[in-house]
Each structure stands twice: as C-alpha cells, then as structure tokens.
C-alpha cells in the first residue's frame, strides 16, 4: 500500500483580497502506509485544511502532495482515482446524507467508482459492517434516524469505497460516550483488518493516546511536534503552550510522580496507569 508525502505544502485562502489568510505554511510530513496517525491541534491550526489536501479537494498554493510517489494533481483522472483511494470523512458527516434509503446513500461512493451491481452490493455491506450499521436499517430513510446512526451511515459511505487511506475529521464530535467508543472501535477494526492507513483528526488527547501509533501536532499552520504518543506526551509544557493538554492519565501520573510515587514516563492511558499502580501494590486487578 502506498505512502503519503507532503512536501513544503502551503495554502493561502482568498489570495489577493482583504481576507487573505495563510492556513498552511511549509508543511512537510510523511505518512507511511498502514500507520494510524492522530492529527492534533487547536482550532484554526490548519488540521482541516491539511486533510483536504490529502485527496486533492484543495489545491496547494505551493508545494506538492505525493501519493505512491506521484503528484496527485498530475491529471484530472488521477485526482478522481485518488478520491476513491483516500476516503475522507468530513466533520459532522451526517449533514451530507441525501438519498431516500440508507442503502442507496452508502452506495453513492461505490456507484461513482463505476462498479457492477454485485460489486456495489458487496462494498455497501462491507462498509456497513465496518461502520456498525445494521442491515435492517438499509431501507430506512437516513434523514429520520438518530444523530449517531446518521454518523455511522456517513462513515459507512466512505468505508464502502474500500479506501487505502481513511481520513476522519473529528468523527466523534458531539456523540455520547458509548457512541464515541463504538465508532473508535469500528475505525480501529477497519485499520486492523484491512491494513489501511488511518488519519484521525481530533483535539481529544485521550482519544489520540488510546488509538494512534503516531501523533502529529499542528500549530499555526505548521507541524509543531510529531512522534509516538510517549514522545509527544513527554513534553507537556510545549503542548500546553499550544493550547493543548496531555491525557488525563498522563496528567495523573505526572501529579503522582511529583508526590514521590515512582512511575515510568510512558503512561498515557488509564488502563496502563491502573496496571502500573496495582503492580506496585503487588495486587492483581480486581
């Protein structure tokens, strides 16, 4: 599976008007295939602009986006093909549903790919399964379902294209905790079983810590920090200066260390912290 590479990417909105704004400034980033990456950053740090470059919805003002070693803007046909291979789920994707039935909405992407009926059916069922949409909902109108279900259908619509890269912009924003957990589980499952790259945009540190293999922190339109969760969360001061926090568990571990409890630095999920604390007491989890 192919890698993504961003080379000195720059994007300026409304160039030549009083509203001119540089959203991305010299971004260099490599996303190897199969990696689960969390893209973090404060509001306005350029996360959403960045991901819209990944599948060519935005054209860079300067710089290049390479997929599989080739510029994605080399031709119109190539760009359309890229859109099927890099699936992008927008923020609040439930507002993009339009078909009369759930099935047909999920089938929109696969149909645009020009697949046969049988292939479309296969893709739709697969996408629905990965996103946790029950087949009993296929004939319902997507506009009459609950917010959480709509979100799943929209995610299924992108997963149904079987993209090599799945990019999700705040997929759990505004959902209840149970809905958040299950959608994150679905995404992790898709990542594991298809081996595809996942780019998850979030500002929730706990989500990033528990899900991703690698974190990319953005600030002011540039990549400020990147590395494994351990590496990034070992620099809480820098994160705070960017308006971000470290995960709850990491903060707790830090507070405990300050009070003299001997704990390793690489703690950033509640489960791991609990395990360490229990092992110190010599007890087993109950």
């Amino acid at each position: 599976m192919p890698d993504i590479r961003l080379e000195s990417l720059r994007h300026v909105y409304s160039r030549g008007t009083p509203f001119e704004k540089t959203a991305l400034d010299n971004v260099n980033l490599d996303i190897p295939s199969g990696q689960y990456v969390a893209l973090l950053g404060h509001t306005g740090s350029g996360k959403s602009t960045l991901i819209q470059h990944l599948n060519g919805l935005l054209t860079p003002t300067s710089g290049r986006v390479l997929f599989d070693g080739e510029d994605i803007h080399r031709s119109k046909e190539a760009l359309r093909d890229i859109r099927f291979r890099i699936g992008l789920v927008f923020q609040y994707p439930e507002y993009q549903l339009f078909e009369e039935t759930v099935y047909r909405d999920i089938a929109f992407g696969p149909k645009n790919m020009g697949l046969s009926e049988a292939e479309i059916d296969d893709h739709v069922r697969r996408g629905a399964r990965f996103a946790g949409v029950d087949e009993s909902l296929f004939d319902a109108s997507p506009l009459e379902l609950s917010g959480g279900q709509k979100r799943r259908i929209a995610i299924a619509g992108v997963m149904a294209m079987k993209p090599d890269v799945l990019v999700l912009d705040e997929p759990i924003a505004g959902l209840d905790p149970a809905g958040c957990r299950s959608i994150l589980k679905n995404i992790a499952e898709y990542h594991r079983s298809t081996g595809s790259t996942v780019v998850l945009v979030t500002h929730d540190m706990d989500v990033a810590a528990s899900q991703a293999e690698r974190l990319v922190v953005m600030k002011g339109g540039a990549v400020a920090l990147t590395g494994t969760p351990e590496e990034v969360f070992a620099r809480p001061e820098e994160l705070r200066s960017m308006g971000l926090d470290i995960p709850e568990a990491a903060a707790l571990a830090q507070a405990l260390r300050a009070r003299g409890v001997v704990l390793p630095y690489a703690i950033y999920t509640p489960g791991y912290l609990a395990k360490k604390l229990l092992s110190m007491r010599g007890g087993a989890p109950c």
Binding site: Q52, L57, G87, L88, P93, Y95, Q96, F98, G109, M113
Partner: peptide, 29 residues
Amino acid sequence: MSAQKARGADFDTGGLVKRAKALLPVLVP
C-alpha cells in the same frame, strides 16, 4: 460539495441534464 466530491461526485463534466442531476446530492442536504 467537498464531502460529495470526496465520495467521487463529479460536478464539472457531462451535459446539462447530467450536471443538474449531479447537484441533487448537494441540494438535498
């Protein structure tokens, strides 16, 4: 429009009827 483009919608090619039809996924939402 961006969201539907990400699912392969094509707004720029085809005749008048095809283009009008292509707008449906934008107009309904």
